[in-house]
Nucleic acid binder design. Structure first.
Ligand SMILES: [Mn+2]
Ligand SMILES: [Mn+2]
Ligand SMILES: [Zn+2]
Ligand SMILES: [Zn+2]
Lengths: 174, 174
DNA sequence: TGTTAGTTATCATGACATGCAAATTAGTGC
DNA sequence: GCACTAATTTGCATGTCATGATAACTAACA
């Protein structure tokens, strides 16, 4: 979904074929675990959690440690290959879409969609009164298109006590 | 700070004199602990955490239980007297300002300021493509006016791993 | 004053994330 | 291919924030 049309530059993870280079640049060894996670995240717009990645990864690589998932995700974030997004749903989300964008959270199914605010209102106000705004995070809540149609199956329980809003964790791009 | 001028209707907690009624309405007893917390929160724009309220409350009422703090804060939230705000700083914030507003987080001192987006861009877009936006949360990050002036003393360490953005937890107003 | 809600203390649980040390392995040189 | 060593992985412990559960005690209020 788009809030307003306009040019959107997406900075995505580098391609899997560049993988080796990506890791070597940072003097990181090309382990099977890193390859797997890199592949699982590349072009992944589902905004997975560490746990969900752990589940997925475990199928392809039984025995992989959850600790390694966290470890590697942190490294990839440090490398600027993905950003951490906290939408207030309990667990951090990992997003290979490095472009400046916001998120929509469906309160019914829990799905998370990218929202590109482009020519949209530049919220970077506030310089008045001595405040210096460096970053703005926006989270939209509502019902996604799918849930808006068919009967409301209302999954997405887990432990979200109600509605929440959001949070993005900035990543040092070195 | 304001992003854009305009009429701002603030829904605040009821006054302390209405306290008794407030509690009785919900068939809750008017205990000293509840009175204390109600008073500590009334007109409080510091967005305290449960722990910080516990510290403050303990001074006036040594022996008060942290469990009671959480308990009472939950009740007050259920009663619609305050809202829970998650700014991604680890702990939930409690905000007696029930009006629709957003927040500014100072990355230097950790202070949280209310931001009133009034006539500002109505971000409630997205109805196109079948998405129904019900709520929008915004968190501004930067340096507050105080930190912007004097030398940057940079407190606010604790356990924020970096920058984050935000989240608001909706409260059932019954 | 009695009934009963509320508080306290304690302990357990739960989700999410990180610290740590021992075991393993990738990548190097031979 | 083989040995070597530093980088990684793994398993477990720890930490934070928050809630559940129980029992014993306290006090609101009808
Ligand atoms: Mn995204
Ligand atoms: Mn506020
Ligand atoms: Zn949905
Ligand atoms: Zn500040």
């Amino acid at each position: 979904m788009q809030i307003s049309a306009g040019l959107v530059i997406l900075f995505e993870m580098r391609s899997p074929t560049e993988l080796a280079q990506v890791f070597r640049e940072k003097q990181l060894r090309l382990t099977p675990q890193r390859q797997l996670l890199f592949n699982l995240l590349h072009d992944n717009n589902s905004h997975p959690t560490a746990e969900s990645l752990f589940e997925t990864a475990s199928k392809q690589m039984p025995g992989i440690s959850l600790r390694t998932i966290y470890q590697t995700l942190g490294e990839l974030a440090d490398m600027g290959e993905l950003q951490l997004v906290d939408l207030g749903n309990g667990a951090m989300r990992f997003d290979p879409n490095m472009g400046e964008h916001q998120h929509f959270v469906c309160g019914s199914c829990g799905a998370i969609h990218d929202v590109d605010i482009t020519s949209a209102p530049k919220l970077r106000a506030g310089s008045a009164e001595g405040f210096a705004v460096e970053e703005v995070g926006v989270v939209f809540h509502g019902r996604c298109n799918r849930c808006n149609q068919g009967e409301q199956k209302s999954h997405h329980s887990k432990r979200s006590p109600g509605f929440q809003a959001k949070k993005i964790k900035q990543v040092k791009t070195n």
